[in-house]
């Protein structure tokens, strides 16, 4: 952890050439003004049009009764939100989102920490293993989803073969809503735990060695050192991972789309928003309302992160 992303004010002052104090609108200032615009404006305009404008448009669309593709729409105020929260789908969708997020976050963080401990061992081959474990994180969700669908295939998948080996019949993963959620969660954790492992590994390797040695001399065994020293000292890493994995779990789309196209039991908020607008129904206003709900949840998480970051956790 040699350098934080937020550079210190001292570094800033050092790096930026000292502004020359002449007239407020001297030739150089004016030239810089236009240079800045020429360099930064294309990017800023793209961000404004395709990141900020959609947020506003989404809120507007969410007040419309509007079929995608139709040229007419009626303003219905908050009816779409009321319709969503009072529909029979709402508990289902919110429950699925909650289960998917909690289990994938908990699963990839716990397994990620265990893998990080394995990667931190003083043996040969950890560099290769670290790369291998991280690899699924950068692979196409569509490709990964297909590979695992084949593995889970009740007729010809490896898993069904293994289950037959112990005298079991493979369950119908796709047709059962609960099992398809289990399946998607397993694959999601497989794809993402490498990210947690590598971040945890960086945390483990920045732990102060002298504290560990002192505890070791005091007779604390490996488990005791891990629970009493490593875990508390890793709390900033844990908090960082909690937030980042929670945000990405709430946005998980690729695997759900490719493994369970109908969203049978796996319809999270993001997937429901997609299905409502681009699935069979073309309910644009309703879909926008779900997107706004999702955005509100993500916003709350981000704000919580900003509020608690320096206070609640040990942060060196």
């Amino acid at each position: 952890m040699t350098r934080q992303l937020t550079s210190s004010p001292a570094a800033t002052a050092q790096a930026v050439p000292a502004p020359q104090r002449r007239g407020r609108w001297s030739g150089r200032t004016r030239r810089d003004f236009f240079v800045f615009l020429a360099l930064a404006l294309p990017n800023l305009a793209l961000i404004a049009v395709f990141t900020y404008l959609p947020l506003i448009n989404n809120m507007y669309y969410s007040t419309l009764d509007w079929t995608l593709g139709s040229t007419s729409a009626t303003v219905v105020g908050l009816d779409n939100y009321v319709a969503f929260f009072t529909s029979s789908d709402a508990p289902q969708v919110l429950g699925t989102t909650l289960v998917f997020t909690v289990v994938t976050v908990g699963g990839s963080m716990t397994l990620g920490l265990l893998v990080a401990l394995a990667l931190n061992a003083k043996v040969r081959g950890t560099t290769f293993a670290r790369s291998a474990v991280f690899a699924p994180y950068v692979l196409s969700g569509v490709g990964v989803g297909l590979v695992w669908l084949f593995i889970f295939d009740p007729g010809y998948g490896v898993l069904s073969w293994l289950l037959r080996g112990i005298g079991q019949q493979s369950p119908q993963w796709i047709n059962d809503p609960q099992l398809s959620l289990v399946m998607v969660i397993i694959v999601y954790v497989w794809k993402n735990l490498g990210y947690c492992a590598v971040v945890y590994l960086a945390g483990l390797q920045s732990l102060p060695k002298d504290v560990m040695e002192a505890a070791s001399l005091d007779g604390a065994n490996g488990l005791r050192r891990f629970m009493s020293i490593s875990v508390p000292l890793l709390s900033p890493t844990t908090f960082f991972l909690l937030i980042t994995t929670m945000i990405s779990s709430l946005q998980a789309f690729d695997l759900i789309r490719i493994m369970t196209p109908l969203g049978n039991g796996t319809s999270t908020l993001i997937y429901e928003a997609y299905l409502q607008a681009f699935g069979a129904y073309n309910r644009a206003g309703y879909s926008a309302a779900i997107s706004v709900v999702l955005f509100a949840i993500l916003l709350i998480i981000t704000v919580l992160q900003l509020r608690f970051v320096e206070r609640k956790v040990h942060y060196s």
Binding site: N57, N58, I270, A288, L294
Partner: peptide, 16 residues
């Protein structure tokens, strides 16, 4: 902008 997930923007961007 870094914190705005692209997924919530797909419908407005599609229409645009």
């Amino acid at each position: 902008a870094l914190m705005v997930p692209p997924q919530v923007s797909i419908l407005p961007n599609y229409i645009l």
